[in-house]
Design a protein around this nucleic acid. Sequence first.
DNA 1: AAAATTTTGTAAAACGTTTTAGAAACAAAA
DNA 2: TTTTGTTTCTAAAACGTTTTACAAAATTTT
Lengths: 345, 345
Amino acid sequence: MSDRPIVSPDVTIRDVAEAAGVSISLVSFVLNARRGPSGEYLCSASQKTAERIVETAERLGYHRNKAATSLRTGRSDTIGVIVSDISNTCFGQICRKIEKLATDAGYLTIFASTDDRKENFRQLVDKFLYSGVDGFIVAPCNGVEDSIAKILNRRLPVVIFDRDLPGVEGIGRVLLDNEKAGRSAVRILRGQGRRHIGLVRYETDIPTIIAREKGCRDEAAKCGIPFTSAILARETMRRDMVSVLHNAREEGVDAMIFPSNAITVDGLSAINELGFAIPEDLAVVGFDQEDRSEMFNPWFSFVNQPTKLVAEYSFRMLLGAIKGDGQLETKIINPLYTLGSRIKQ
Amino acid sequence: MSDRPIVSPDVTIRDVAEAAGVSISLVSFVLNARRGPSGEYLCSASQKTAERIVETAERLGYHRNKAATSLRTGRSDTIGVIVSDISNTCFGQICRKIEKLATDAGYLTIFASTDDRKENFRQLVDKFLYSGVDGFIVAPCNGVEDSIAKILNRRLPVVIFDRDLPGVEGIGRVLLDNEKAGRSAVRILRGQGRRHIGLVRYETDIPTIIAREKGCRDEAAKCGIPFTSAILARETMRRDMVSVLHNAREEGVDAMIFPSNAITVDGLSAINELGFAIPEDLAVVGFDQEDRSEMFNPWFSFVNQPTKLVAEYSFRMLLGAIKGDGQLETKIINPLYTLGSRIKQ
DNA sequence: AAAATTTTGTAAAACGTTTTAGAAACAAAA
DNA sequence: TTTTGTTTCTAAAACGTTTTACAAAATTTT
């Protein structure tokens, strides 16, 4: 198949230097040299020796020892990515895309999941810091401002996405326009002829969810239709959901908005359990859900983060900050809509 | 503005040594010492100095520099995990669990996705090798035996899961009993009163899929019911699926098995498009699908990898191999069934 | 009290790289 | 020729650990 040379485990820069008959330093210079417009090596070696060195390195199967480089330079060419749960499809997609971008830029990516618990977040930040990442892309938990500060103290760049940390300065942000997402949810339901809109959420101070609710409320007010929201205790949400939905329908609510992933799952389960038909009994807009419409043929709509965009903006911004060009800013992106549809049967 | 951030200079082992009034070596010995039954430090330092050193290290906020340790010892306390797509829920869950186990064991995990393309797989193995991982857990693509050999050449342990690489020796395996999974799929459908079972797959030599089909065929033969299988070209599967399912039904097929994730997605889409009712027109068993039954209330069944078990066996086996105790073996696990159910409406 | 042994500690050499400061070698200018 | 500049290359000092091979001190044995 491929006639590549067998990579022997320990070819060092010294071996290359000896084989090429030059000093270690020169090998290092050449191997780290930037290339000129016509491919020439921009370093203090003559083109002839430079080429000989590169060729020798290749022939011997030399690969830079990352630990040594990292020790010497303080760089690791690694970025750390922290999310609440990488097995959540939305985060999985974002991580996947970041990984690809990072790879193409010569970076290694390490991922970790927090379960949305700040103690875990803190621990992971420490772990990543001590393993020497060059920068962070994180979906923060609430109350992790101190961890972010710790990163910034080390002069490492941070980009956050998915959820804001209001008041924190010196970081990059890639965030959904959540109020807009809320307004859109209401408009979608209005477009389906709905006249009384409900929203269920758990008790929280997560800005994302609060903003979505605000957007919904504002838009409903603007349209002059009734808007009812219910707030459940986080622990008992699953249980309480059934009675809340039951009552809402009794009160004439004909459309529900579930403003986060977890709420959407519980909400749809409850609707299933109640035997409500979607959308005949209740129209639905869910958030942060994977699009499975083609398989499951649902009649409800989703509002999502455009995962590809989030990944691209986040990584670009971080890379800029690491390299020194480019700066950390706040990027507000538009939500992605998947409108419910049912294929005629 | 005028407040310059306090960059805490990294505190090294030397700082600890000075602060504690001992030599660098002693600090290293103490900090790497194993603990005796009553918590004493098993090294050539007296308990008193050992405690003083540990306390000093903590007070100064010392953290081992990983690059230096890695350079010196050749260990990195990092494992590499390669899957085809981390945004696939099944793989996401496995990765998540591996990450947790690895963290608890003091290891860092780096993940990467191949898109099931062997060139990518090779590249990632190289990348992980050169960044010095201590071991691999991978869901291999077909035809990557050479990459595995490369790892083994470096004396690093490998555990594969999800898909077998027949004939490769010296590696650990955590695999589903795919024939059994196939047999179970048929039995599930039999239990629902089905009398003519069909299966669609794309053209492939992936052992996983072949084994599942064999299991189905065997069980159907054993039960004495007709079994029809269709093999589509990979590229046009999505398109062809509709006509295949249409014809199958004409021929009296009353139950379909889709023996992999991608096939299941395309199959269900086609069924949606055809407007077939599940299970009235066609009963279905899908493979490798996320369980969304509570939300979507489907009337079909899944056969899945038990993600938690796969992760646990894989990591345990790898850790054993890294540490030197424990050995690489082949572990065959039972598939996980999610039986279709519809809540009365 | 001397010798032997054990306990407690240290100096110094790696590990493989980058990078500073400067040395040769060579060419151009005086 | 000498001087001055380039171009091309090198020696050696880090980076922060671990670990080998001893040294010094304390303790026990003779």
